[in-house]
Amino acid sequence: MKPELTLHERTLTLQRYPARNNETLQAWDAADEYLINHVTEAGIPLDPTRPIIILNDSFGALSCWFADDGEVTTVTDSFIAKQGCMANLTENRLPPASIIDCLAELPENPQLVLMKLPKNNRLLVWQLQQLCQLLPADCPVIAAAKARDIHSSTLKLFEKHLGETKTSLAVKKARLIFCQANPALAQPLPAPQQWDVPEHKMTLSNHANVFSSDSLDIGARLLLEHIPRGGQYQDIIDLGCGNGVIGIKAARLNPQAKVICVDESYMAAASAQMNAEHNLDNPDQLTAKVNNCLDGFPAQSADLVLCNPPFHQQSAITDHIAWQMFCDAKHALRANGKLVVIGNRHLGYGAKLKRLFGNVTVIAQNNKFVVYQSDK
């Protein structure tokens, strides 16, 4: 896949993160191109002294394009997107952007907001409410997505939480949403969603962009019943932790252990840390970190890795993240350490684990999920 984006007699070199040999996916899409073309062709005046806010930039295409036009603040919930954005800014020798997570405060007096629609409507509402509290009257909001992902319900969310909303015609199967903030709609940001898991005596809270916002998903329910316990587990990793429920259960079953919860979502890591405070007698037993899988983790530093891999990156369906998780887990495990993985039956993780570890055991399954164990 060619990594050059060429528009308006300008070319950017853009790579996805982490970089892979023979990459088949682009680091931008038609919605990015539509946004760039619209702002350029509409002649929207840009003041180099005022912030441009860019939300949910997948790998930095928008941040790179507008880096010379104002003080770019890029807002993302993705550690991987942040790393990709920084790498692409450096590759193209552009000024650095201020890259913040979705829980951080937005810069004051922005001149323009560009948004890629998030997959999660809860995160969309959170961001719209953030913007409504902040935007001056002269700051337009322009959002973009694949046309199939912009529904009448999407436009109603903009109308309800931000202000008057219009939409464009589709170009290359992408559409734009135009909105102007109405201060009368401003309201406090919603609190994290909270619910009880009585069978495990937990109360869980999720920030807006964390998977399964108001109930325990069925995969986690199965894995919770099959977490190993024993004095040999001194260092445990919950990889792809979400709200931390698996790591918290592992910490309870193994009170002698230190547990690290790892996710690439800032909101997930914040939720996991918050849930540890509420559900563990010794919250210091658990630490939540934002990372790309187990980058930088020392070899032979863990006795048990628990993993519920995602099978998509941004909007692209892919299995390379699961494979990286399994490889990183093998690197981090000590001799005789265990990797316990849950996945949908159709994903075929068993074959991958057998190829990597030389062994795999099915320790539980139902009609949808399988729990595998591989020993190092």
Rank of each mutant, 00 (worst) to 15 (best):
R10T: 10
L12P: 07
L14T: 10
L14C: 11
R16A: 06
Y17P: 01
Y17A: 15
P18V: 09
P18I: 08
T24F: 04
D29Q: 10
A30E: 14
D32T: 08
E41Q: 14
D47V: 12
L55S: 04
F59P: 01
A61C: 13
A61W: 08
G70C: 10
T73N: 04
T73Q: 06
T74Y: 01
F79L: 05
A81T: 04
K82Q: 11
K82Y: 00
L89T: 12
P96W: 02
S98F: 01
I100N: 03
C102P: 00
A104V: 00
E105D: 15
P107S: 04
P107L: 04
L117M: 13
K119S: 15
K119E: 03
N121S: 12
R122Y: 13
L123D: 00
W126I: 00
W126M: 00
L128E: 06
C132T: 14
P136Y: 10
A143P: 00
A147G: 08
D149V: 01
D149L: 07
D149R: 05
T154M: 12
L155S: 04
H161D: 05
H161P: 04
E164Y: 11
K166L: 12
T167G: 09
S168A: 10
S168K: 02
L169R: 11
A170I: 04
L176E: 07
Q187K: 11
A191T: 13
Q194P: 01
W195H: 11
W195P: 02
V197N: 02
K201T: 15
K201S: 15
T203A: 15
L204H: 01
L204G: 01
A208N: 02
D214A: 13
D217P: 03
L222W: 05
G231P: 11
Y233K: 03
L239R: 05
C241I: 02
N243L: 00
I248P: 01
P255W: 03
P255A: 07
Q256I: 06
D263G: 10
A269Q: 00
A272P: 00
T287N: 01
N291I: 03
D295E: 15
P298F: 06
P298M: 07
D303M: 10
L304T: 10
L304S: 08
L306F: 09
C307K: 03
N308S: 13
Q314F: 10
A316Q: 13
I317C: 02
W323S: 09
Q324S: 13
M325Y: 09
F326E: 03
N336Y: 09
K338M: 07
L339S: 03
L339K: 05
L339A: 05
G343P: 04
N344H: 14
A351N: 11
A351Y: 04
F357P: 09
N359T: 08
N359M: 06
V360A: 11
V362N: 02
Q365D: 14
K368C: 03
Y372P: 02
S374G: 06
